[in-house]
């Protein structure tokens, strides 16, 4: 089953969110408008709005209020992607040219800043200081996570906890915040809010681990780029870290990483192949499963509704996804 099928009953609300996102990022300058909607048009899983909507179901579900949070969170995510493409010098995202590729880095910087500003302006309709404090803290952590990712590039001597802390900041906390803010916007009981936050956090951790595994195992067609891109950029993701438990592998990779500018795909191909065929993939997936188990346990603290079941199915889908 495809992911959107799991939450197909939310389609009407998700369509309204999509419309609101389009309207929110309209700009006066034609290039700014085109650049801002470029990524929106490329689509996406909209997993953050889905978590906001589903969490909102555990309180008083009033769409205009929930929508405010859902739209703002997805736009914040989009703004960061537009800037990430400048950071990664990426040409394609979701199979479409990135803003920086279609225009240039400058336009991407202005569009990202514009979308971020619009999202905060839009979210300010929600007069709930606690929600803003949580989100602001999340965004700061997200930035620190990205800085740390660059700091840790080509650094072989890393511990599992370094990686986990990095993906916590990079991915998990924004998904966790989505689930939590949906609960806050709907006035859900505090116990539910905490359970939803932790559910989002665990699902987010699993999501990123699987993303990192897929970067080695998925086909170029599914990824939209050649496999092994993370390692090529010097990112020590979980499969690479686990593969480094093999001393010989680690020594060879250390030698290669000593001269980042000399690294090309051909140099790294044997390493990518080694990781793909070693037990590092299986062990990474086992760690992802442990997070998913924790996510399921958080759901047990929520009332047994269709929405709880949907959250469980989403977690299960994330655990099994192949693209």
């Amino acid at each position: 089953m495809k992911l959107p099928m799991i939450y197909s009953y939310l389609k009407k609300d998700l369509d309204k969110i999509e419309d609101a996102m389009t309207n929110t990022i309209r700009a006066e300058h034609p290039v700014l408008e085109d650049a801002s909607v470029q990524l929106l048009r490329a689509g996406g899983k909209r997993i953050r709005p889905v978590f906001v909507l589903l969490s909102g179901k555990f309180g008083t579900y009033e769409l205009p209020r929930i929508q405010t949070v859902a739209v703002a969170l997805e736009l914040i995510h989009m703004a960061s992607l537009v800037h990430d493409d400048v950071i990664d010098d990426a040409e394609l995202r979701r199979g479409k040219p990135t803003v920086k590729a279609k225009w240039d880095n400058k336009v991407a910087m202005y569009a990202g800043d514009y979308i971020f500003a619009r999202s905060l302006e839009y979210l300010s309709k929600l007069e709930e200081p606690r929600a803003h404090q949580i989100l602001a803290h999340t965004i700061v952590e997200l930035c620190i996570g990205e800085v740390e990712q660059i700091r840790d590039k080509y650094r072989i001597e890393q511990h599992l906890k370094d990686y986990l802390r990095r993906i916590r900041r990079k991915t998990a906390i924004l998904i966790a915040a989505s689930a939590r803010l949906g609960a806050i916007a709907s006035g859900a009981p505090l116990g539910y809010e905490s359970a939803l936050y932790r559910y989002g956090y665990y699902v987010g951790m699993s999501y990123q681990i699987i993303d990192d595994v897929l970067d080695f195992t998925a086909s170029e067609t599914d990824l939209g780029k050649p496999a092994g891109g993370d390692l090529l950029q010097g990112n020590m993701t979980l499969p690479a870290l686990l593969a480094c438990e093999d001393r010989f592998f680690k020594e060879r990779l250390t030698q290669v990483f000593r001269d980042p500018e000399a690294i090309d795909r051909e140099t790294l191909e044997p390493f990518i192949q080694h990781i793909k065929t070693s037990d590092a993939i299986e062990r990474s997936l086992a760690i992802s499963d442990r997070y998913l188990e924790k996510a399921y346990r958080e759901l047990d603290k929520l009332p047994p509704t269709r929405d709880r079941n949907t959250l469980k199915q989403i977690a299960r889908h994330i655990g099994k996804r192949s693209s």
Partner: peptide, 30 residues
């Protein structure tokens, strides 16, 4: 890092004002 530094400073603006509960000011500056 230049991209990320800019993002970090603007995240701090939101964090300071949200911490003070100044949502109107967040909106005005946004």
């Amino acid at each position: 890092l230049t991209v990320l530094a800019g993002n970090y400073y603007s995240a701090l603006y939101y964090q300071i004002l949200a911490g003070l509960g100044e949502i109107d000011m967040v909106a005005l500056l946004a």
